[in-house]
Amino acid sequence: MASCDRRRFITYGLRASALILASASARAACVDPDEMSGSVQSMRESLEYTDSAPDASQACRDCAYFKPVKTGDSCAPCEVLTSPVSASGHCVSWTKRS
């Protein structure tokens, strides 16, 4: 009986670990900050870029400067920040897409 409990514990532990890893990779930033140039990092800081918009109606996906390759892209280049940004991100240069 103890071996069944141990197996169940290990199985649940592995499932939980897989779910945690999957959710972390889904939330991963579009660009590794360590791989960005100093000028890109500085621009992001000066424009107060964040990967999560405080107001969903002003997320990058609805900004005129967000240029996704295809509809629904979660990361795409930003013309202002000159680097990929999250579709759910935001900066002070946000401009409504027409």
Results as ranks from 00 to 15, higher is better:
1 M>F: 00
2 A>T: 10
2 A>S: 11
2 A>V: 05
4 C>S: 08
5 D>R: 11
6 R>P: 01
7 R>M: 08
8 R>G: 01
9 F>S: 08
10 I>E: 10
11 T>L: 08
11 T>V: 03
12 Y>W: 05
15 R>W: 13
16 A>K: 13
16 A>F: 07
18 A>G: 04
18 A>F: 06
19 L>K: 14
21 L>Q: 14
23 S>Q: 14
23 S>D: 15
24 A>Q: 12
24 A>P: 00
25 S>W: 07
25 S>R: 11
26 A>S: 13
26 A>C: 05
27 R>S: 15
28 A>Y: 15
28 A>V: 07
29 A>N: 12
31 V>D: 06
31 V>N: 03
33 P>L: 10
34 D>H: 13
34 D>P: 10
34 D>F: 01
35 E>P: 01
36 M>G: 00
36 M>T: 03
37 S>D: 14
39 S>G: 06
39 S>Y: 03
40 V>K: 08
41 Q>R: 12
41 Q>Y: 06
45 E>L: 15
46 S>T: 12
46 S>W: 01
47 L>P: 06
47 L>A: 15
47 L>S: 12
48 E>A: 15
49 Y>V: 06
49 Y>I: 05
50 T>Y: 02
51 D>M: 08
51 D>W: 00
57 S>D: 12
60 C>K: 06
61 R>I: 06
61 R>S: 11
61 R>L: 11
64 A>P: 02
66 F>C: 02
67 K>C: 01
68 P>A: 08
68 P>S: 07
69 V>D: 03
70 K>R: 13
70 K>T: 13
71 T>G: 11
71 T>K: 06
72 G>F: 04
72 G>C: 08
73 D>G: 02
74 S>T: 05
75 C>F: 01
76 A>E: 00
76 A>K: 02
76 A>Y: 00
77 P>Q: 09
77 P>E: 02
77 P>N: 08
80 V>R: 06
80 V>M: 11
80 V>I: 12
83 S>T: 13
84 P>T: 03
84 P>G: 04
84 P>I: 01
85 V>M: 06
86 S>N: 00
86 S>D: 04
87 A>D: 02
88 S>C: 10
89 G>N: 07
89 G>A: 08
89 G>E: 00
92 V>T: 15
92 V>G: 04
92 V>E: 10
92 V>I: 14
92 V>R: 13
94 W>R: 05
96 K>S: 08
96 K>W: 02
97 R>V: 09
97 R>N: 02
98 S>R: 00
98 S>I: 02
